[in-house]
Design a protein around this nucleic acid. Structure first.
Length: 203
DNA sequence: ATCGGGATCTTCT
DNA sequence: GAAGATCCCGATC
């Protein structure tokens, strides 16, 4: 049987918006694909957050550091770091080379390779990639992917949308304390794979 | 269903 | 020395 996900078209860098907020909205409904060990893992992006220049919540707020150089790559590269010493977080750089802005991928709707993503038979489908730490684990994204070109020919890449996208809603970001009132979180309205409290997901 | 604490490491004060 | 773009588990309602 042919899977719809096999037809996923790689996005070209030229197609990506040049503005970080526009990028965060644009990525909703796009796909993330990782070909590992002969298997294809594919999922729809359903939730993102934007981290901007001058944003106190951003890792690039104080400029270049040892862990964040990938945030300063041209748009469309992966910035992966370890949160709380344990969980990998996947971001997509979103500006020009030398400008530290990125979009955090916060939740995915699994499309293909779901059994490989699941940690156990009992894990519920909605839980597989709900939250940035979980989705990185499910997609086998690690620190080794930091700096990867997501618009290139590599195994980890961004793909075009594979179906209709419901309206994109906005809220404040999750899990931060600085600049916490800015509305820079985007999600597909009504999608059950979105993370976070219900109170944030009404839009 | 919801709440709170612990794990664990890089970075900056 | 403290905080952090989180997750999981156990306790409690």
């Amino acid at each position: 049987m042919k899977h719809a996900a096999e037809k996923i078209r790689r996005l070209k860098r030229k197609e990506l918006p040049r503005d970080t907020v526009a990028m965060a909205k644009f990525l909703i409904g796009c796909t993330l694909v990782h070909d590992v060990d002969g298997d294809r893992l594919a999922a729809r992006i359903v939730e993102t957050e934007a981290y901007l220049t001058g944003d106190a919540a951003s890792h690039a707020y104080r400029g270049l550091t040892k862990r964040n150089p990938s945030m300063f790559l041209k748009r469309g590269h992966a910035y992966v770091y370890i949160s709380y010493g344990v969980w990998p977080m996947l971001n997509v750089s979103s500006s020009e080379k030398g400008v530290g802005e990125a979009v955090l991928i916060r939740a995915l709707e699994p499309l293909q390779g779901i059994e490989a993503m699941r940690r156990s038979e009992s894990e519920r489908p909605f839980d597989i990639a709900r939250g940035p730490g979980r989705l990185a684990r499910a997609m086998r994204v690690t620190l080794a992917d930091d700096g990867a070109d997501l618009c290139g020919a590599g195994p980890l890449f961004l793909g075009a949308p594979i179906r209709h996208i419901d309206p994109v809603a906005i809220s404040t970001r999750i899990g931060i304390t600085k600049d916490a009132d800015r509305k820079l979180r985007f999600f597909e309205r009504g999608n059950p794979f979105v993370s976070g409290p219900k109170s944030l997901n009404i839009g």
